[in-house]
């Protein structure tokens, strides 16, 4: 349980970070909260000759609200999501998702950007980002760019980031009027990665019908996925007419989750459908309040 040898870099600027990443290429990995990377290194499941610690880089931490957008610095701890009243007010889904991430000791150290860039398909924040249409601010040696959440997650533990790029911040749209959101997951124990989970963000129009519906699922595919068929079925419907069990089934119609020792693929689909029904009902209930 000792990692293999590596050289440790602790730069103070984003430019130094990306320069190091560019210099060492595949032999280099950025270190954020370390809650996934460090155990993998200790188990020698992976190894890098160079680690670039992001924790001392200026300007990567903090929360800022402007013009309907909440911008969260990449190195902001997950614990902030559940404790910062500004976040709970602006993007309540983040505050609801955070307690589901591991245990509080993990969240004290784990970062928002780290969880997103690690892109575990069963983790919560990627699914939240996808459902809310978040935008990733990315920096590389040749400058900065933005990536939409829909384009960011490309596979298990893989993203649209180039090897010499890092996420610097994530922007979430502030909750609109008559909008409700919910996240729910089924995990074997509190704090475990979910066997399956779902996120819903629902808006109603002035007449009380669904005007916008976003559902994302996690734990059922190699990335978080939007349940577009179920979303389409919801738009225009009156909440009283919505059969959430049916929406759950529809959400999983296109998915073929895989087996692991905790659940078979069909079981995962059954659980995800059940969980989807729950989040849709909760989000609609909140939107109509």
């Amino acid at each position: 349980m000792k990692p293999g040898p590596f050289e440790y870099h602790a730069p103070h600027t984003v430019a130094d970070v990306t320069a190091l990443l560019a210099e060492h290429g595949d032999e280099c990995k950025p270190l954020a909260g370390g809650q996934s990377l460090v155990p993998m290194l200790a188990l020698r499941l992976t190894g890098f000759p160079h680690l670039v610690d992001l924790n001392r880089v200026d300007g990567l931490s903090g929360v800022e609200r402007s013009n309907g957008t909440l911008v969260i610095g990449a190195i902001t701890r997950q614990r902030v999501l559940e404790r910062d009243p500004q976040i709970a007010e602006a993007v309540p889904l983040l505050a609801r998702a955070a307690p589901l991430i591991g245990h509080f000791q993990i969240r004290n150290r784990g970062t928002v950007g780290g969880s997103l860039a690690h892109a575990d398909p069963a983790s919560e924040l990627p699914a939240v980002a996808l459902a809310l249409g978040a935008t990733f601010d990315v920096a590389g040696p040749n400058g900065t760019r933005s990536i939409a959440a829909a384009d960011f997650f490309t596979g298990t533990w893989s993203t649209a980031l180039e090897p010499d790029e890092i996420v610097t911040a994530v922007s979430f749209p502030v909750r609109g009027e008559r909008t409700g959101s919910a996240i729910h997951e089924m995990a074997r124990r509190h704090g475990d990665f979910a066997i399956a989970g779902a996120v819903a963000n629902m808006s109603l129009d002035a007449a009380g019908r669904v005007s916008a519906a976003a559902i994302s699922l996690f734990g059922v595919a190699s990335t978080p996925v939007r349940a577009t068929g179920a979303e389409a079925a919801l738009v225009g419907a009156a909440p009283a007419d919505i059969n959430t069990l049916e929406i759950g089934r529809l959400a999983l119609a296109d998915q073929e989750p895989t087996d692991d020792i905790h659940a078979t693929g069909p079981q995962r689909a059954r659980i995800a459908a059940h969980v989807t029904g729950i989040v849709v009902a909760r989000a609609l209930e909140e939107a109509g309040r």
Binding site: I195, H262, Q267
Partner: peptide, 8 residues
Amino acid sequence: LGPREVLD
């Protein structure tokens, strides 16, 4: 009797 076995 994990969820896998119960669901099975």
